[in-house]
């Protein structure tokens, strides 16, 4: 069985993000990059299948040379091989999905895991788009996954509860936090990862549906105001809440 896990190379969730001079990219100076946290859940789920019934786990990622670092991490965790669809061009969700879907077809995989979203673009649609392009079944925001033959029983997180769904292979699953507890790389895994192959394929980005005009930082929060320290400040507080904040 071949499983494809799509991984994204994203800025560290703890990094302070500044916008670059071109206003279309972030300033990468001083920012370290990590494997997209939701993709860790996706990869762990694939590795669990590999551990229990055996599978060939292939990582697929799109981007420049720097992405290899993230693919290497996935290999150190236990994936068997990696494919970098190499391009530095701007992509929207659909163009990314098309590139990935094309590769999945080539790989002949019938089970695909992705994180429910990448924490950089935050569009959260690539998984579903891939499923649509390939004509695969799709379960998004999965917090539980069970494979029996080609039958899948999964649970999805929904507002205020969980939804239990059943489907079958071929399928695309997008992973939510809670699906599993991703393993850390082991020392042997790191050594082995050095010997595993990352296949680099130059790709061309097809037409873009959504163009990025510019990046903007959220408006800075205004500093708080201290009106006083005891009950004498209450009338002024009420006046400001009424007249300035207009919340009462």
């Amino acid at each position: 069985m071949k499983i494809v896990v799509c991984v994204s190379h994203v800025p560290d969730s703890a990094a302070k993000i500044n916008i670059g001079a071109d206003e279309k990219n972030i300033d990468k100076n001083g920012v370290s990059f990590i494997l997209n946290p939701y993709d860790e859940f996706a990869l762990e789920e694939a590795l669990k299948i590999k551990d229990s019934i055996g599978a060939d786990v292939v990582l697929v990622s799109v981007g420049g040379d720097e992405v290899k670092e993230t693919i290497r991490k996935g290999l150190a965790m236990g994936a068997d091989s990696g494919i970098l669809l190499k391009t530095n061009a701007y992509r929207d969700s659909i163009s990314t999905a098309k590139l990935i879907a094309e590769e999945i077809k080539l790989q002949g995989a019938n089970l695909v895991f992705l994180g429910k979203q990448s924490i950089d673009g935050d569009n959260g649609v690539v998984g579903q788009l891939v499923a649509e392009i390939l004509g695969f079944n799709s379960v998004s925001v999965a917090v539980s996954f069970n494979l029996n033959g080609d039958k899948i029983v999964a649970e999805r997180e929904i507002e205020g509860g969980r939804e239990v769904v059943e489907t079958s292979l071929p399928a695309v699953i997008t992973a939510q936090k809670g699906l599993n507890d991703p393993r850390y790389a082991s020392l042997k895994g790191i050594m082995a990862a050095k010997k595993k192959v990352i296949d680099e394929k130059e790709v061309t980005v097809s037409e873009i549906g959504v163009e990025l005009i510019k990046l903007k930082k959220p408006a800075q929060k205004q500093a708080g105001k201290i009106l006083g320290k005891d009950s004498s400040a209450v009338p002024e507080l009420v006046r400001l809440l009424k007249e300035e904040a207009k919340v009462i």
């Binding site: 990590i34 494997l35 290497r72 991490k73 790389a185």
Partner: peptide
């Protein structure tokens, strides 16, 4: 060795 943890990025180190 099998069950020891190695950090592969800043997040894991944290």
């Amino acid at each position: 060795i099998e069950n020891s943890w190695i950090a592969t990025d800043a997040k894991t180190r944290r």
